[in-house]
Design a protein around this nucleic acid. Structure first.
Lengths: 146, 146
DNA sequence: ACCAGTATGTCAGAATATTGACATGAGTCA
DNA sequence: TGACTCATGTCAATATTCTGACATACTGGT
């Protein structure tokens, strides 16, 4: 060995496996959302709003793991299509609280069912204890990186 | 409840946690690779070539989870910068086997050490058994989705 | 009151990745 | 041999995301 072997073993690297799993999940979600005319960020935004109505653009960006600029243009298109509404000017501060419309909620219902199917398939070989274990371990990784 | 509650619980969803972890890992890797003038795809390509010399463009694309068109333009820039070499025309078939240059390998050594630091930090709260468990569970998820 | 620091919404330009398309080569099967 | 299928490398166009920048608004300390 002429140079130090600090190479990362791809096949056994947790980081690589994590990326592989996330990539597979993304592909599977895109496959079921595409027929609905929805992208993943699209869906993530609506899902966040369904669970936490009134989130700001910046909140949604953090929750969907994109920049707030990206979320802003997405929100503009969602608003144009009538899926969400935002007040004309901020009630207080600069924050514009966003809310789902009835149309947005009904579209989300379909998308949410499709995504649930993907998640169920992903976890199909895991029993309840393993799912909990996976959540725990992923949570530790997230905490350690932030 | 006027409409059926098929909503996915974001906080407890394995899929959401997976995306969160992958996003945190990506951010951390970008942070350490940026000072080296390298992107994640950049690094992934070099790392793949170090472990499996002679991979084709399509192989590299699959290994780095991008389209082969994206990998192609990346390889062109890597070739232009002298990090990798490809034969002028295919030895057999259409496949152009790619190899690291000495320059590419030395640049990779630095990047690899930086990335290893990130991975170590990510797994810092996990003991050996937990790391093995995480690999196993992620592997099951990947298998179930493909 | 003031000022520095931080967070937000938004516009514009740049970087990155994807989809579509085409030609070429290999393998299969009748 | 010929037809068919599949994988590869690559060009072009499109789409998506990010970075940079700016004005505005809140917050905490002096």
């Amino acid at each position: 060995m002429s140079h130090k072997d600090a190479r990362i073993e791809l096949d056994t690297s947790v980081g690589y496996l994590l990326k592989e799993a996330a990539s597979a999940l993304r592909a599977a979600m895109e496959a079921v959302l595409r027929p609905l005319g929805m992208s993943i960020t699209h869906y993530a935004c609506l899902e966040l709003l369904a669970q936490r109505p009134g989130l700001s653009n910046s909140d949604l960006a953090r929750g969907a793991f994109v920049s707030r600029q990206s979320m802003n243009v997405l929100l503009q298109s969602l608003e144009r299509d009538g899926y969400v509404t935002r007040p004309e000017h901020a009630p207080e501060g600069r924050v514009l609280p966003t809310r789902l419309t009835e149309l947005g909620r009904s579209r989300l219902d379909v998308a949410s069912a499709a995504v649930r199917g993907v998640e169920d398939r992903m976890r199909s070989d895991l029993d309840a204890a393993e799912r909990e274990q996976l959540r725990l371990l992923l949570g530790k990784c997230v905490a350690a990186l932030s």
